Simulated scan of single mutants.
Amino acid sequence: MSDALGAPARRTTRLSVNLNKIAVLRNSRGGHDPDVLHAARVCLDAGAHGITVHPRPDARHIRTDDVLALGALTAARGVEFNIEGNPFAPARGAYPGLLALCAQVRPAQVTLVPDGDAQLTSDHGFDFARDSATLRPLVTQLHALDCRVSLFADAGADIEAAVSTGADRIELYTGPWAEAFAAGTPDAALPSLVDTACRARAAGLGVNAGHDLSQANLGALLDALAPVDEVSIGHALIGEALYDGLAATVRRYLAIVNAQV
């Protein structure tokens, strides 16, 4: 693809920073430090395109009050707020349930993820052949709140069934890619991811990507999958920021996503 002058057209991948790990550190001691809202401001001031959080019913990291405060901040800044969560998890304590929380905040994007309390982190996508019928009315409700809906998906996912839910995007689970890259065998995980992304785009879905992405493996993934609409990155980014600083680390990720042509 080229622009009018014949140069390669630049495909923009947006970076959304996941702040869950900031909340983990805060919750480990109680109180307010490190401050999730302050971290969000630093990320946005450094150029991040949006903020992602994944509130869990057990409040292991991001809490409902964080979601409300970050919703106000992102709305005031005019940037994207992406809330991830399991739409089937019932309300518990201060957690009102994902749809009720989204009704209060009206995030730009909601990423539906099939995680449970027993999972340390999200480690698989939906079984769309099984779950599409129950996802469909939830997608409709979120669209009524003016939220774009993305569905967490494994490589090789049933794209036709995903499309039947009415969702706008899938988010490819990239954990296996990160593992293969670290093992020195990145090509082992790429073909299925590339095929799934191509089938999703051909069916009219946008493509996001996330999980275990880092400065080391992100560029190669984006080169292979381009175009990718958005990446949400938290664990590695926050870990790298402990050494190099949060603003500097966000800028380095932006340099990677902006380098894709």
Rank of each mutant, 00 (worst) to 15 (best):
L101N: 08
R63P: 00
I51V: 14
P55N: 05
V53W: 11
R56Y: 03
A69N: 07
Y95H: 09
R56K: 05
G85T: 07
G50E: 12
T64E: 15
G97T: 04
L70V: 05
V53L: 15
H49E: 12
G71A: 03
R92L: 13
V67G: 00
N86T: 10
T52R: 07
G50D: 07
T74Q: 04
I83D: 11
A76F: 01
G78N: 02
T64A: 13
T74F: 05
I83K: 04
P87F: 09
A59E: 15
D65A: 15
I51R: 05
A48T: 14
P55D: 01
P90L: 12
P96G: 08
D58C: 15
G50R: 14
F88P: 00
A91C: 06
L98M: 03
H49T: 11
A59N: 13
A72C: 08
N86M: 13
F88E: 10
P55V: 08
T64G: 14
N82Q: 15
L68F: 06
I62D: 06
D66H: 08
C102K: 01
F81R: 01
I62W: 02
H49S: 14
G97D: 08
I83E: 05
E84P: 10
A100R: 07
G85N: 13
A94Q: 09
G71M: 08
P57L: 06
N86Y: 13
H61D: 02
L98C: 06
R63E: 14
T74R: 13
Y95A: 00
A59F: 08
A75T: 09
V53R: 11
G93P: 12
D65P: 00
C102E: 01
P55T: 10
I83R: 01
D66N: 11
P87R: 10
G93I: 08
C102I: 06
D58V: 14
L98Q: 05
G85D: 10
T52K: 04
A59H: 15
E84K: 04
D58Y: 10
R63G: 03
A75N: 05
G97C: 01
R60K: 12
R60T: 12
A48V: 13
H49C: 13
P55Q: 04
V79H: 12
R56V: 03
C102D: 06
A72Y: 03
N86L: 12
G97V: 02
F88K: 02
A89Q: 07
V67I: 02
R92S: 14
L73H: 08
Y95I: 03
E80P: 03
L98S: 08
H61V: 02
A72P: 06
Y95F: 10
A100F: 00
I62K: 01
G78Y: 12
P90R: 07
F88L: 12
P55G: 09
A91L: 02
L73M: 00
T64V: 11
T74E: 05
A76Q: 11
A94R: 06
L68Y: 09
G97W: 09
H49W: 11
R92M: 09
R56D: 04
P90M: 06
L99E: 10
I83A: 07
A94L: 01
E80Q: 12
P57W: 10
R77I: 08
R77F: 07
P87M: 05
E80A: 13
A91H: 03
F88N: 09
A75P: 00
G78V: 06
C102R: 02
V79K: 01
I51W: 13
G85W: 11
H61G: 01
A48H: 14
A48F: 15
R92N: 09
L70A: 04
